[in-house]
């Protein structure tokens, strides 16, 4: 066990994957000498060379598209997209090409491409640097989408994404890059399956499902609720596509109440999909409607007011109150 930040854990995951398989290579903007704007790739170009850690032009479509071609010819490319909003110039390649080749060819082509995207707000920045576009990608079949909330998962999800034969997008909670945690680089333990949800706090009265940057917030809300005598279970969703509905259903069958929290706007978001599926699968176990907590349906606000936009402990507690008072 080693204590490290999420950023360092991803760095170590990339280092381990680069060391384990010479077909793994990194591509992205400023990932070489600079080590990425968040220093996630710090030192990797020095260690593995410019051929393995490739500084690319500002050209997201080219980065993704080149990675597709490399993957077609036996490589395992890992693309870093500098900020969430910068992925959109590459959206076409991701949704019309990367996600589709395997199905289009009835399995003849596999594309083990990993796309790392720092996402979410809370860093005092503006739109394009603070967004949570995961639902846009989750809507596209053929992409696997995962997001770590802690350093151990960050290490293993990085490695698992690179080893996965399918395209994987790893949404990295940029606000939490400096959050420290224990990492076991020898044994993933319960994190062996990146596509499963984890119960990170057990409870009996209500369930909160959260992922990425909001998992610590959900835990804090659950702790606050405990002071009022409520026993709240918290699930770290971990995988946004596919979603581990079995785990959510099992928790809801136990607690009878569900709150889903994410930074992305609730409109058309992952929370709506979870609410809908759980109402289909466990309607008679629900004591109250599923409540969503998320961003508003508006462009990401300016830094001075983003605290009013981002879900916080109070908004999650309000949602819990709603489910308890229904």
């Amino acid at each position: 066990m080693t204590t490290m930040t999420i950023a360092k854990a991803i760095n170590e995951g990339l280092r381990a994957s680069l060391g384990a398989d010479e077909t793994t290579l990194l591509m992205g903007e400023d990932i070489g000498a600079l080590g990425g704007v968040y220093r996630v790739t710090d030192g990797l170009q020095q260690e593995f060379g410019e051929d393995r850690v490739v500084d690319s032009p500002l050209a997201e479509s080219g980065i993704i598209g080149t990675s597709i071609g490399l993957a077609m010819r036996g490589y395992r490319p890992v693309c870093e997209i500098q900020f969430d909003g910068f992925v959109f110039p590459g959206f076409n390649q991701i949704t019309t090409q990367l996600a589709k080749y395997h199905a289009r060819t009835s399995g003849n082509v596999t594309l083990p491409v990993t796309i790392r995207i720092p996402y979410g707000g809370g860093i005092g920045s503006v739109e394009h640097h603070s967004e949570s576009p995961e639902a846009l990608f989750a809507h596209t079949a053929g992409l696997r989408i995962i997001t770590p909330s802690n350093a151990h998962d960050a290490y293993w999800m990085t490695r698992q994404a690179i080893e996965c034969p399918d395209p994987v997008i790893v949404f990295e909670p940029k606000k939490r890059y400096w959050l420290k945690g224990e990492v076991d680089t020898q044994d993933p333990g319960a994190s062996a399956d990146p596509f499963s949800a984890h119960v990170v706090r057990e409870g009996t009265d209500a369930t909160i499902v959260a992922y990425g940057p909001l998992v610590p917030v959900a835990l804090a809300a659950a702790n606050a609720a405990a002071e009022e005598g409520r026993s709240v279970e918290v699930l770290d969703l971990r995988s946004i596509s596919p979603i581990d509905f079995d785990a959510i259903e099992a928790s809801v069958r136990k607690t009878g109440r569900l709150v889903v929290a994410h930074e992305a706007p609730t409109f058309g978001g992952i929370g709506g999909e979870i609410a809908s599926r759980i109402s289909e699968r466990a309607f008679l176990s629900l004591e109250a409607p599923v409540i969503r907590v998320g961003g508003f349906h508006m462009p990401y606000p300016v830094a001075k007011v983003e605290e009013h936009y981002l879900p916080d402990i109070d908004r999650i507690l309000d949602a819990l109150d709603k489910t308890f008072s229904y």
Binding site: S61, G62, I64, G65, T66, S67, I68, G69, L70, A71, M72, R73, P77, Q93, Q97
Partner: peptide, 8 residues
């Protein structure tokens, strides 16, 4: 772009 990757 995928042609570039193959050439790469």
């Amino acid at each position: 772009p995928p042609a570039l990757g193959q050439a790469f």
